[in-house]
Simulated assay, not measured.
Amino acid sequence: MSSSVLTPSAGTRSSSTVTHTPSGATLAQVLATATAVLEAADVPSPKVDAELLAAHVLGVSRGRLATMVMLGESFSESDAPAFAQLIASRAKRIPLQHLTQVAYFRYLDLFVGPGVFVPRPETESVVQLAIDVAATLTNPLMVDLGTGSGAIAGSLAHEVPGAQVYAVELSEQAYAYAARNLEPLGVTLVRGDLTDALPELDGRCDVVVSNPPYIPANAVPREPEARDHDPAMALYGGGEDGMVLPRAAAASAARLLHPGGYFVMEHAEVQAPAMAAMFRATGHWENVKTHQDLNGRDRATSGVRR
């Protein structure tokens, strides 16, 4: 299912190195040094990132890399410059996924890079809510509003047999990534605004999912990876409360769904009470529920179309 390129791009090959790799140095030694560099840069998961970058450069799986380390294999001198450059870039807090060009989401390997929001593990639980509902239906018609890389729409298409899945994305850059990721999965991708997209499906859809931009204007992310590299268009929801685009997504979902259709939307933990109140205030929804992610944080709100 992968559409990612798992070999180093031309830009990662460099004659300059950040740390010297001694001749015959073992993988374990090289990984330990790289991990120390990332720790010093406050990278959240330095050991894992060092291993993933090494596996990327060597063209092997992380499991195969672990075997190579256990066997005491040496790090190839020809691959050392590329690895050193990637570690230096990660130490500057360039997202790991931008360096490897792949984001792992549920069962998919997604092609990502600058200009598209990198999907987060927390969203996987939101997708599961939609899949659980769709699993009770025959050939459900499903929509992902604001698809970004295509993570949600791709997972729906991959995991729900017989599903007809549509995805909407406004950003030109994100659309290009989504097109590459979703084409093999048979998803219908539309370039458009989630506020008025897919009028031809009004009142016909079974399930609508959205992870819209929802960060308030003054709540700049602390993590450099998000603050400096995720596109602002994918982060900020509009207004002081960040609720402008979530309200628009909910309105579109109400338009698209038939009575009894299911809508689930991701949001920030602190927005959960406001989201539930917004769902109820519109009069479009019944059985409104707040759902927690695997970390126990309020992550999504759902409702059934009246």
Rank of each mutant, 00 (worst) to 15 (best):
R64K: 14
A272Q: 09
P81M: 08
A91K: 04
A248P: 03
A272C: 13
A41L: 00
Q128D: 15
A250L: 13
M275V: 14
P44D: 08
G186I: 00
E39H: 10
Y166V: 10
G24T: 07
R106Q: 05
V69I: 10
S155I: 00
S4C: 15
Y107W: 11
L110S: 08
I131L: 11
V165M: 03
V48E: 13
E51I: 06
L6W: 08
H158P: 02
L65A: 03
Q85M: 07
D144F: 00
R280W: 05
A135F: 05
A88I: 07
V112L: 12
S125G: 08
R180D: 02
L145H: 02
R13T: 13
A84N: 12
A226S: 04
T188M: 10
V116E: 02
A251I: 03
L235R: 00
Y104R: 15
T290A: 14
P161I: 14
M142E: 07
F263S: 05
F117E: 07
L53A: 00
Q101G: 06
V102W: 01
Q29M: 09
H56D: 06
L156V: 05
A66G: 02
L182P: 08
D228E: 12
A80T: 04
V190T: 15
D42N: 14
S4D: 04
G239D: 09
R297G: 09
P216C: 10
A103T: 09
V133H: 12
E286D: 12
A82E: 02
R280Q: 14
L110Q: 04
R227K: 12
S149T: 02
M1C: 08
N139L: 01
V30Q: 03
L71K: 15
A130H: 12
M233Y: 02
V190P: 05
H267M: 13
L256T: 09
A32Y: 05
T33A: 15
P22C: 09
G283I: 14
P161Q: 01
Q164G: 10
D202W: 04
V187T: 06
E225M: 04
Y214C: 02
D202C: 09
P199C: 07
V18F: 13
A25W: 03
N139A: 14
P259Y: 04
Q29F: 00
H284P: 04
N287I: 03
D109Y: 00
A41G: 00
R299H: 01
P22M: 05
F263D: 05
S15H: 13
Q97K: 07
T21P: 12
V126S: 10
H267G: 13
A36I: 09
V165P: 00
V48H: 12
P81C: 06
V133Q: 11
V5L: 13
L38F: 06
V5G: 11
R247W: 08
G261D: 06
L99Y: 00
P224F: 04
K289A: 12
E51Y: 10
N211T: 11
M265A: 15
N211L: 06
